[in-house]
Amino acid sequence: MLLAIDAGNTNIVFAVMQNGEVSARWRIATDARRTADEYAVWLRQLMQLAQIDPAAIKSVIISTVVPRALHNLTLLAQKYLDCDPIVAGRGEGDYGLVIDVDEPGSLGADRAVNAVAAHAKYDGDLVVIDFGTATTLDHVDYTGAYKGGIIAPGINLSLDALVAAAAKLPNIAIEAPATNSVIGRNTEEQMHIGVYWGYVSMMEGIVQRMRAEIGRPTKVVATGGLAQLFDKHTDLFDAVEPDLTLNGLAIIAARVESTT
């Protein structure tokens, strides 16, 4: 079995995978100060509840956009799982795709791994939208090359900034407005409309511009925790893939295993 670790700015996802499919997954808040020992205690308890023997983990792969977290995640794999982890984008964990941008080294590991998984599953040009701490929209062309993209504030960041800057605005949940009207009748309704439909309009507008610039038929693949929420009220997405990053990690790990 493979343990895939996706360390994002807000959360770290640990997933046990077999044959490229997720058997179990757990999520913990990202904290670069958390030690390998703390990870191990937490993870072993969850594995026990899921009836997974840690000794069955034969390989570990890590993708991280938080450089300070890498050391302790590596130590977790080495000390408690007896594995030297593959690090996505480094050494034998190379992404295996052309990164055709001005600064290839600046591309976040999550975005590159998403590109690997999306190209493996879908033909032609793709726009991959990932709803994370930031919302990213990435163009992967028909050859599998990463051609560039867009970084926008995540919807939670946008809402937090709005509430923090306006003293009288309340905290609200991220959810679709109760009606399809875009004229709110009270403060909370107006905030839901502004945040939700504003975000939908932003995505639809940017994707329209990206498709025009690409100039070829282009599928849109969405991933991240809020993808399914938006999928209910827009026909923008051709596919929603909640496990896209984990699938990409499994592809890279399998490629490494086949060459060793």
Rank of each mutant, 00 (worst) to 15 (best):
Y142D: 15
A145P: 05
L46G: 08
D37F: 11
V140H: 00
L75I: 11
A115P: 07
A167D: 11
Y95T: 09
L49Q: 15
H139D: 01
A55S: 14
G89T: 03
D94K: 11
A117T: 03
L162T: 08
A77L: 04
I62K: 00
I174V: 13
E175R: 13
L49Y: 13
L49H: 13
D100A: 13
G96T: 10
D102H: 13
K58V: 13
L126F: 11
N72F: 09
N72W: 04
T136K: 10
V116S: 06
L126M: 12
P67I: 03
A56I: 12
I174H: 06
A164T: 12
Q78V: 07
D100L: 05
D130R: 09
S106D: 14
L169G: 02
A161T: 12
M47S: 03
R44M: 15
G91V: 11
A29K: 14
Y122A: 02
A152L: 14
D138G: 02
A29T: 14
I151R: 07
G96H: 11
K58T: 15
V140P: 00
P153F: 00
A115Q: 06
Y146V: 09
V116Y: 03
P153A: 02
G93L: 01
R33T: 13
Y146S: 03
I52A: 03
H139S: 00
V128N: 00
L162K: 06
A134C: 14
L46N: 12
I174M: 02
Q45I: 07
A134L: 09
D160V: 10
A152T: 15
A112F: 01
L46Y: 05
A167T: 09
Q51V: 13
L162F: 05
G149V: 00
A145C: 05
A173L: 13
T35A: 04
V113Q: 03
Q78P: 03
I151E: 02
A69I: 04
P153N: 02
G148D: 06
G148A: 08
E175F: 07
I172L: 10
D160Y: 10
N171K: 15
G89I: 02
T143P: 02
L159T: 04
V41T: 14
I129K: 05
R68C: 03
E92R: 14
